[in-house]
Design a protein around this nucleic acid. Structure first.
Lengths: 165, 165
DNA sequence: CGATACAGTACCAATTTAGTGCTGTATGGC
DNA sequence: GCCATACAGCACTAAATTGGTACTGTATCG
């Protein structure tokens, strides 16, 4: 399903909450965020520590301590948050662990996966935490250099019937 | 890492191999494909059964039987193959299992994930199995309706520094 | 009628993921 | 100084997923 992990999903949510609070100058504790989101405190804590270690959050210890964004929300991409939570975006295993797949040298599709991977990365790179706070445009991408299929025959699932997202 | 499963990856490879053979009119057995790809036969078998059950492959039993594409390779999208292997593309859990996340009604980012999800789907929808056999264009997508970040500061990982893939 | 090859299902082991617990250390207020 | 607060860093467990196997059944060709 090309899924990100639940924790990463939470991570994005927490980042957006922090973006709201940070612009008011407040820093808020793991406890606050846990209460706000309804997620268990240990989980929130774990995520915030991770984001902090990867320099996306600033942390302040002690009484009245807490977390706040390390940079402006308009300057932190969704891609970075995902990267901090689970490593660089890699749709196939050979993207971030090359050499593991025995047939890599003769694999007919690997180079194309790299391009697809980069296309997805570029979308996630361009969307910032701040963007997530308000509705994104309906149409995020236009395809280039591909023949767009003429008939709708293969558009089975819930996927886009036009190129609008 | 927004990863698809290994089996799905194999599935795409097998589909492209079958595309090559199908255009020559041959149908080939699981054993043949296992030998060609170096993957264990039971694995190849399992994948082909799945793709067959989902009507992407035609199967022929008996001596000289085997598999072939159910449709032209130019008419089967990568998105469909992924869908057959692991269900519809869903970057977050709430995309294909709504109602599971307790805070769905108030989730500030869910609608945006849907748009991102659709953007990714549309890319994978437009790329066919036939496309995977030859190099894709370097630039697969252009972003629309988003402000492209001006500084390269946040482009840390291996991700695209321009919009080319 | 027998060898070939797919269909279906059940199963197992290894990894990954989600979530918890505990110990340590910095900070601020009384 | 002392204590409560709150982050840092591990180590750990349990559940779910994944990758891979085995076995039985059925269709088809020669």
């Amino acid at each position: 399903m090309i899924r990100m992990s639940k924790l990463t999903d939470y991570g994005i949510v927490l980042m957006t909450r922090l973006a709201e609070h940070s612009q008011a100058g407040e820093n808020c504790s793991a406890r606050d965020l846990a209460r706000e989101t309804g997620l268990p405190l240990p989980v929130v804590s774990k995520i915030l520590k991770l984001l902090s270690k990867n320099r996306l959050l600033k942390s302040q210890r002690g009484a009245n301590g807490g977390y706040s964004l390390a940079r402006s929300a308009t300057d932190i991409s969704v891609s970075e948050v995902i990267g901090a939570m689970e490593g660089p975006i890699a749709v196939t295993e050979c993207m971030d662990t090359p050499g593991d797949c025995r047939q890599e040298p003769v694999c007919p599709v690997r180079h194309n996966w790299r391009k697809i991977n980069n296309a997805i990365s570029s979308v996630l790179d361009a969307i910032t935490v701040a963007d997530m706070l308000e509705p994104l445009p309906d149409s995020l991408v236009t395809l280039t250099g591909l023949e767009i299929p003429l008939d709708g025959s293969k558009l089975t699932g819930g996927s886009a019937s036009s190129l609008t997202a």
